[in-house]
Design a protein around this nucleic acid. Structure first.
Lengths: 340, 340
DNA sequence: TTGTACGCGTTATCAG
DNA sequence: CTGATAACGCGTACAA
C-alpha cells in the first residue's frame, strides 16, 4: 500500500522488461496490441501512476512554471494568475506561485529557488522596490524564458505584457471632456513609478489634444487610501476655481473623493464627474457606481502564458516580445452627466 | 552557457569526485575545511545551482504541495492561498495552484495530475458539485496528507480546517439583538449547502437563546447577486410587519438590501440594521460601511499549512485533525444603532 | 577525509 | 516486436 508502483512492478508481474512497459504506456507504434492490452490492464490493476519527477529529470522538462507577484490576494494579481493557470493547465503545466511582499531580497531568493526547482519559465510582476537585475540576468543565462507582466524592468531579452497606461488615462480624460467637463483634475500616486508617470502623461495629452489648458494646481498627490482621496479632494475643492471633474490614478482615490464631495453637499456626477483606475470590484457597487479604467487582468495573464508558449516552441530562436494591452474604460454613473 | 552545471562539472574542475562535492555542498562534517572552501568557490564561479528534481527523485520528497480551489481570483480563496504560501514558502515548499471551476471532472483530473507530480500534500476546497470521493481515497491510499479547507467532504482520514458558520451567524444575530432589534430577518442562499444550513441554524439558536420567536416569513432566499438582495429586501419590507434588522448570509445580499432600503427612504441603521457575511473588501467602503462576519481566510490558510506540516512530521502516526476556526464579527455602521 | 558504486523512475538507443 | 543498458543529477552506504 505504501510503496508507489513503478513500471518495474508491472514489468515483473508480466514477465517482460520495463522498457516494454514504458513503450506500451506511451503508445509506441512498434509494440504488439497484445502486450499493450496486458500492460494497460496491469497498470490499472496496480493503480500505476507515472512519476513525473523521474520523467522531468530524464527529459529536462519539469512542466512547472513559476509565477511571482507581490501579493497574491490582490484582485488584480489573482486575476492575472487565474488567466495564466487557465491557459497553461490544459497544456499540462503546473503553476507555482510565490509572493515577494514588494521585497527585493525576497524576490531574489524566490527566483533562485525557482531556478533550483527547474521551472521552465518565470512570469513575474516585479516588486516595487527592486533596483537590481542580476537575478533576472541569471535566469536569461540559463536560457529559460523570463516574462514580465504589468510591472517591468528595462532588460534586453525579456518579453513583457503590460497595460497601456497612457492610453487608459487618455481615454478617461477624453471621456470627461466629452461629458462637457471644463476643469479636469488628476490625482496621482507615486510619480517615481512609470505607470503613474504614464497616466499623468495620458491625462495631459488628452487635455492638449482638445485644446484645454494644463493647470499644475489640478494635479494632486495621494497615498493609496480612502482618507488620502478625501484630503486630496478637499485640496482641490478649496482652490479658487474648483474642478468639475476628477480623474484619479486609482480607485480608492476616486472613492475618497466621492465621499468628500458628498459630505460637502456636492452632487455626483452633476457637480463633479469622477473616474478611477483599476476597475476594482467595489467600484460597481458604489453609489454612484464609479467609472474606472479596466486593466484586463485576465487577458493579461492569458497573453503572458501564450508568450511563454510561443517562446518555448520556437526552439533556438530567441524572441523578445513586448505586448501592450489596451485598457477599456468602464463607464458608469459617476461620470455620466447627460442621462443614458 | 546553455548546459546547466552539475556537481560533476565542479568535481572535474577540482580533480575530486562528485561525492565529495556533494558532501562539501551539504556541509558534511567529515570533510576538510580546505576542500570545502575550494568547492564552494568553484560552485560560485561556475554558477552552480542544485537540481531539485534530482534531489526529489532520489529522496522521494518533491517539496511541492498542491492547492486546489474553485477560482483563484475570489478574495476569500486568494487570501487563503496567501496564508498557505506564507507559511510554507519559508519551509522550502513550492505551492502549486489549480482551479476546478466548480467542476467535479476537472477536480478529479487535477488531483490525478498532482499525484503524478509527486506533491507531498493536497490542500483543497472541494468543488461545489463534487459528489464522489474516489479521487480523494486514492490520495489517502498513496499515504499523502489530504487537507480540506472551508469546504469539506465527510471522509475518514482527512484533516480539515473550516469556519464555524453556526457561531458566526449566532454572533451576528446576537449583536443585532443587543442593538435592540426586535424583528430580525435572515437572507439565505442555498440551503442544500452545509454552510448555509449552519448559518441559518446559528441565527435560529441566537433568537431562541434570547427568548425571541422564530418567524419563517423572516427567512428569504436569494441568489448571489445584488439584485437578488434588493428583491429579497422588498419581499421583507412588504410584510405586514417588516423587520427592523436583516442578517444576510452573504455580503452582496446585504448590499442589495441596503440599496433597496435607501430607495424606499429607510435609514440605516436607524430603521433597519444590516449585517452581512464574508467581510468582502467592499463592505468597508460602502455608505454606511457594512457590518460583516469575517471568515479569517489568512489564518485559515496558515492553519491548513500547519496541519500539513504536523502531519508530515509525525512519521507513521496517522492523524486526522479537524480545526474549526472562530469567525469574528466586524461591527460597522450599518448595524450600530446607539452611537459609539 | 575521500573515493566507489548504486539507486531513485523514466525513456532513448542500440541490439537482437 | 522486445530486451538490455545507459543516462538524467544527486546523495549515501560502504570501502579505503
Amino acid at each position: 500500500m505504501k510503496k508507489k508502483t513503478t513500471i518495474y512492478d508491472i514489468a515483473k508481474e508480466l514477465n517482460i522488461t520495463a522498457a516494454t512497459v514504458s513503450r506500451a504506456l506511451n503508445n509506441n507504434p512498434r509494440i504488439s496490441e497484445e502486450t499493450k492490452k496486458l500492460v494497460l490492464a496491469m497498470a490499472a490493476k496496480l493503480n500505476y501512476k507515472q512519476n513525473k519527477l523521474a520523467l522531468a529529470l530524464k527529459s529536462g522538462k519539469s512542466n512547472n512554471v513559476g509565477v511571482v507577484v507581490p501579493f497574491i490576494n490582490r484582485n488584480f494579481f489573482s486575476s492575472v494568475i487565474r488567466g495564466i493557470e487557465e491557459e497553461l493547465n490544459p497544456k499540462g503545466y503546473n503553476v507555482i506561485i510565490s509572493q515577494t511582499h514588494e521585497d527585493e531580497k525576497k524576490e531574489i531568493d524566490i527566483v533562485q529557488n525557482l531556478l533550483n526547482s527547474q521551472v521552465e519559465s518565470i512570469l513575474i510582476s516585479v516588486s516595487r522596490n527592486t533596483r537590481t537585475n542580476e537575478h533576472f540576468k541569471q535566469v536569461l543565462r540559463k536560457n529559460i524564458p523570463l516574462i514580465f507582466f504589468d510591472r517591468k524592468l528595462e532588460l534586453g531579452g525579456v518579453s513583457s505584457v503590460t497595460l497601456d497606461d497612457f492610453q487608459g488615462a487618455y481615454q478617461a480624460t477624453e471621456h470627461l471632456i466629452e461629458q462637457g467637463c471644463k476643469h479636469i483634475a488628476h490625482m496621482t500616486i507615486d510619480l517615481a513609478l512609470l505607470i503613474y508617470q504614464n497616466r499623468l502623461a495620458g491625462y495631459k495629452q488628452a487635455l492638449e489634444d482638445h485644446g484645454m489648458e494644463f493647470n499644475p494646481d489640478y494635479v494632486v498627490g495621494l497615498k493609496s487610501e480612502i482618507v488620502a482621496g478625501k484630503d486630496a479632494a478637499k485640496k482641490l475643492m478649496d482652490l479658487p476655481k474648483p474642478p468639475d471633474a476628477i480623474f484619479s490614478a486609482n480607485d480608492l482615490g476616486a472613492l475618497g473623493a466621492i465621499q468628500y464631495l458628498k459630505e460637502i453637499g456636492k452632487k455626483i456626477p452633476e457637480d463633479c464627474c469622477i473616474v478611477g483606475f483599476s476597475n476594482e470590484p467595489f467600484t460597481q457597487f458604489m453609489e454612484p457606481p464609479i467609472s474606472s479604467v479596466d486593466q484586463s487582468p485576465l487577458p493579461m495573464g492569458k497573453t503572458a502564458a501564450k508568450v511563454f508558449l510561443e517562446q518555448i516552441n520556437s526552439k533556438g530562436v530567441k524572441i523578445e516580445k513586448s505586448v501592450v494591452l489596451d485598457p477599456t474604460l468602464e463607464i458608469r454613473k459617476s461620470s455620466l452627466k447627460n442621462g443614458k
